[in-house]
Design a binder for these strands. Structure first.
Lengths: 220, 220, 220, 220
DNA sequence: TATGAATGAGTATTCATTCAT
DNA sequence: CATGAATGAATACTCATTCAT
């Protein structure tokens, strides 16, 4: 019965094959992990399928047993990450938290998310201009979503009198860029980073900018 | 026997043949311009030499008469841009301008520079992770320089009491990211942009962040 | 430990397991039927083992439990058909039927045989030039037999004064080609055909050609 | 200027490059000739591009400089042959020759055409079921044309009282099959053939069938 | 200087086949 | 008997680069 399940990683299998299905899912996962690392390091175009499978000692055919083609593993990888990202974001939005340190909490959450998925953060930045229409669309869609989330957070802040009136659409892009560049820059080298420090500094920048405010304590 | 000038873009050494040398320089320039556009659109890896020459109705061999290889045109392109960038920056640094609106002026200058060279801005963002060591090094060197410039500006501001004390190294990266993401985002679509508005908003963000400052006018 | 029976289609040697053996034979037959259809439709080269097993909801490994390899199923299929064909032919030859309508009866029998096995007729026509030596030899052997049968029929006819003297070897090939092309052409579309009409026309053609015979009725 | 001319073999070149263009055309022709032989021998699917270029000591890339892909060389080859075939046929039809030996002349012309292009005759018979829609359509279109030509010849014969009334559509297919099978059979071995004898026999068969006609001389 | 035909190493992908379960 | 995951050799096609003219 079992049809090809190249399209998705879900258990499309008929029941009773727990052992095999598990093995298969594991193989898929291993390939995906290897691909993530290779894509992040060499870029999608330069990365060879042979690089990916060699990294885990597998035959090239195995890759194609599990994935339709090179593009589909990238798409799947991105889609999963985006779903996870969206989930975290909407969790936060639902909480409608308007505590004074809301922006700090937000910056922290985003920075951690980007940081913990540095490989994907790099891939997204690299492949934003990918020649393939589908890939580009996917990433642009994600970016749009990201910007919109931040923007609606800012809009809320404005409504609550916490944020000054501004072009929130533009500001959202700028804030995302701030975090991205920092994460990309700090993870490029591979050295470990004091993420708490990083987040505190970013939040302060984002909240108050660089200017010395006469008579301002260290508040965020 | 005339010396090949594939290596660098300098004026051809064979003096006295002004006509020919000029022609040649023009051809080089045309190729370089075409390459810039193609690289920006498709990315360096996906861009073919044939794409470049087709864009200007030239034979493929001609490309190799003027440039060593595909990589060297990218390197040369980047190097030239970086030189220009450095010149503008050091001009500005020399002026040691410490007027209160110094940051606005700075942001403006940088944004304009990035915006006027959006193709190169895109290329640099894409190729930051380029598989080729030389290319990567070149871009990272540029980035380091860029960050350092901003950082020393911030340090100066701190010394002058205009900027609050902070991790200026980190802040520099963040500020660069802000501008880059905005420029990349706003030029992606190709629609024209109100750059003055963009700069004003960016400067305000950078100076004062997003928080509502009690009793603050629109000052920058 | 049971002996593999991949080599030939004979009844399994492990006696006493009638149930299992039957099951197995059935599976073999199902695979063979599926293969016949797939080969006819896509051609042997383009047909994949996966196409065959998918058509009957079977795992790919099962194919290789029953058949040595892709080639062997083709060979077996052809051999069986050829045996059946030979049986029908020699039946007919034995009867030494020399009735005046002998050629009509013959044409009918052959046409029906080709028509009822149109899949195999197509496969044989396609694979006559198959790259594989064994396959080619098998088909050529069959063709030779086919031609020879027809030829000896013609020779008999000549001896009996029913058929005019001619190059019977050449004529045999021509007559076979006539039937084949018609069957191939008429079954290509899948539409049902008036086989009686087809046979009558073919027999007439074969007997009397296209020329108007002065004062000839519709005789065959 | 010169755009890629992979699509057709015509001189798409700008003027003044007679030497190079000639060379190119020759290379194209050599590749096409090699491809014809290889396709005829191994069949289109089994034939490798590497087989083709190896046969003439060329690099594989050269093939792709001259032809879009493997399929396009087959299509081009067939199209050219079909055009030539159509030209010969319509020449003949125009002459409206109604001499008593018209059918003989016709059979001769067709047989010679098929025989002189035995490679293509084989390819057409093999690839009639090719998996590729375009190829199949092309060949079926040719076959339809071929049948139609013969059929209209027969219809004319009927009108002139030279041919007996019959299902001319069916008869056309049968006559084509007769010639094809004979040509295919006689060229398979590679031995040279007495084509005059072959044609005479075929014409006789086609005109009068196999039956002994009481009181008939050797007339055609 | 410029051309474009020719090159060949490199890459994604397919598919018959094997084998552990 | 049956399964389906894994294999790896084979192949069409691409593209940076060379070179004779």
């Amino acid at each position: 019965m079992a049809v090809t399940n190249k399209e998705n990683g879900a258990e499309t299998r008929t029941a009773g094959n727990g052992r095999a299905a598990l093995r298969k899912a594991e193989t898929r996962a291993r390939i995906k992990a290897a691909a993530r690392a290779v894509f992040a390091e060499k870029g999608y175009e330069k990365a060879n399928v042979s690089d990916i499978v060699r990294a885990i000692g597998m035959a090239q055919g195995t890759f194609y047993y599990h994935f339709q083609d090179k593009k589909s593993i990238l798409m799947e990888m991105l889609n999963e990450y985006f779903d996870q990202f969206r989930a975290v974001m909407s969790d936060w939005m639902q909480s409608e938290d308007a505590a004074p340190d809301v922006t700090y909490i937000f910056a922290r959450r985003v920075a951690v998310l980007l940081y913990e998925n540095k490989d994907l953060t790099h891939i997204i930045m690299q492949e934003a201009h990918n020649a393939d229409e589908d890939v580009r669309r996917l990433i642009h869609g994600f970016n749009r979503f990201f910007y919109e989330q931040v923007r609606s957070g800012l809009d809320l802040g404005v409504a609550l009198g916490l944020v000054r009136p501004m072009d929130t659409r533009l500001a959202a892009v700028a804030l995302v860029g701030m975090i991205r560049e920092v994460v990309a820059n700090r993870t490029r080298s591979g050295e470990d980073i004091d993420i708490e420090h990083l987040i505190r500094e970013l939040a302060e920048l984002q909240n108050h900018g660089i200017r010395l405010r006469p008579g301002a304590g260290n508040n965020f």
